[in-house]
Write a protein that binds this DNA or RNA. Structure first.
Lengths: 326, 326
DNA sequence: CTGAAAGCGCTTACAG
DNA sequence: CTGAAAGCGCTTACAG
């Protein structure tokens, strides 16, 4: 059964048949108790800029599942990298290899750097799970995250439904769009919703704001909004509070705003009715599930689903309280 | 430590101090392996009228968690009752008591009958968890389900947001509203949203349809819809496909419809754009979580949260595919 | 190579 | 009453 040594082929088949007949299920408790084998997992996520930052949340879910699996000898070593420095990704990937974990969860944020990391993981036969974004067919054990294109479709549908008239502005708040495939996909889904569903009675405009350190960016936006009869704003990421501030400052009563993620300030604007919808993706659950994938595959030796698209949650003032807990 | 017999108070305190100092955590694996104690749980849910019915779903989640907990000696005995017969609730409650389970999950559908069941459970010291609806302060271990009032608020908000003009019809499809506290709460939340948020520019109407065995009910509804300039329909439960059929039959292009639950036919209407939103509550997850509560409390002897309000999910054509899996 | 013993961290039936 | 042995279902180091 354990493929330990030489057994006559016929005997082996006989035994395996009996195993099947009896529907023998090895007792995982006894097994882990006896083996006393420790399992070390590692995570590599972007470092959150503050304790309020998005990437704290997957880490919370990771910790929760690890705690539950403590009894099975599972432990975690978390690593983070700087989102602005590919080099820090490489450095921390090296560190992970040096502790030689049984499994890894990471966000393949930088494509090139991720690919060389993956090469090394494959060489060493270390299974890995993607979180948040994914590289297709890279040999991953699985992916936990959202379908960004489809999420853009949801935003398009919602904004169109609630807008009696007027045009729409899509706002990217991002330093380097190149590294933000998410945002590109969301915008694409958003635009395509209108292409598929409407005889283009509305105009869509897109703008990128790369620097919010001063308020200079605002003038141009305000200008656009007035000139182009903008009645709806879609912010492609969690920076929707910038749009909320704008709407509040200028008192645009009939402006409808949609953005992403349950950051504290975003929820505040939601509650003030200055933002109508936040599209969310349960990051804690994603962290939890990513570790669970490793556990099922490595410890329980079970098959797991390759893709695990998180639900695209539509959050309003009225149901937000049921999404904040984990 | 186990309070087995007489131990000098001072020794006991000393030992417990050491336990604390070492932060000793008993090994649950070894414990369950050694004790070989079986844990029998029971569920008491309404019997689903067909394999497509709502109450199959919590049962799926129950089964999943039970399977995972098999290793811990946890097993389940499911019971169902007829939603139209309080007597069948009593009968099955009796059966449950006769098998003497360690814990119970049930839907307190009939108030009076549930209360007498609860009395007996308390006498025998059997912990129980409510699912789907709750009786407050009844000594339950916890509650897993939705906040129906708040869910009605969500529906009110959505329908108002997407309706440029026109009035609204609230439809109850139910035999006996008395036993359907859910529906009453949803309606109340729905009405109150308009009371709180609008200077009542729209009229709201409510209708109860208790018999759908023939098509007679339709005439009156169609009449109302035309006469009262109804542009929005809110169906308080999963029977929203009846409204979908109506909209399809009469080709009401600008009618907006909101209802509940991901039944197959409802999803069909959602995909056809005849229903705009389905409000959902992840019934499989509820079943899963209810069993998990019993497990944590009875087997792991951990504290658990009393209330576990499920998220109020807003589902559209665009995100429905991410809610169907479990 | 391979069978059988020791041991994982507990619980419980049992002897004293 | 209470200490110590046997055993839960496995894994692994070891003897033959």
């Amino acid at each position: 059964m354990h493929d330990r040594g030489e057994v006559a082929e016929i005997t082996k088949r006989k035994i395996l048949q009996i195993v099947k007949d009896l529907n023998y299920q090895p007792n995982l408790l006894a097994s882990t108790l006896a083996s006393k084998k420790p399992y070390l997992f590692a995570t590599l996520f972007p470092a959150p800029p503050s304790s309020d930052g998005y990437w704290n949340k997957p880490a919370i879910g990771v910790k929760k599942r690890i705690q539950e699996l403590n009894q099975f000898g599972v432990d975690i070593q978390p690593f983070t990298f700087n989102q602005a420095e590919p080099k820090s990704f490489i450095e921390n990937a090296e560190k992970i290899l040096s502790i030689n974990p049984e499994g890894i969860v990471f966000a393949p944020f930088f494509k090139k750097e991720s690919e060389s990391f993956i090469e090394q993981l494959k060489e060493r036969n270390i299974p890995f799970v993607f979180i948040d974004s994914e590289i297709k067919l890279a040999g991953q054990l699985g992916y936990v995250g959202q379908n960004s294109y489809q999420s853009g479709m949801v935003s398009g549908k919602l904004l169109d439904l609630i807008l009696p008239e007027g045009n729409i502005l899509v706002m990217h708040f991002a330093k380097e769009m190149d590294n933000q495939n998410h945002l590109v996909q969301r915008e694409k889904g958003f635009y395509n919703w209108f292409k598929k569903n409407k005889q283009t009675t509305r105009q869509l405009y897109t703008t990128e704001i790369s620097d919010t350190s001063s308020d200079i960016w605002m003038d141009q936006i305000v200008n656009t909004i007035h000139k182009k009869n903008i009645k709806g704003i879609f912010v492609t990421n969690s920076k929707v509070y910038y749009a909320g501030r704008l709407v509040e400052k200028f008192g645009w009563d009939d402006m409808k705003v949609i953005g992403h993620d349950l950051l504290r300030e975003n929820v505040l604007f939601l509650k003030k009715n200055l933002v109508q919808f936040l599209i969310c993706q349960r990051p804690e659950e994603q962290g939890y599930n990513s570790i669970n994938k490793l556990f099922k595959y490595i410890v329980q030796k079970k098959g797991i689903a390759k893709e695990n698209y998180t639900s695209i949650d539509i959050v309003t003032k009225e149901n937000v309280d049921f999404y904040k807990e984990f």
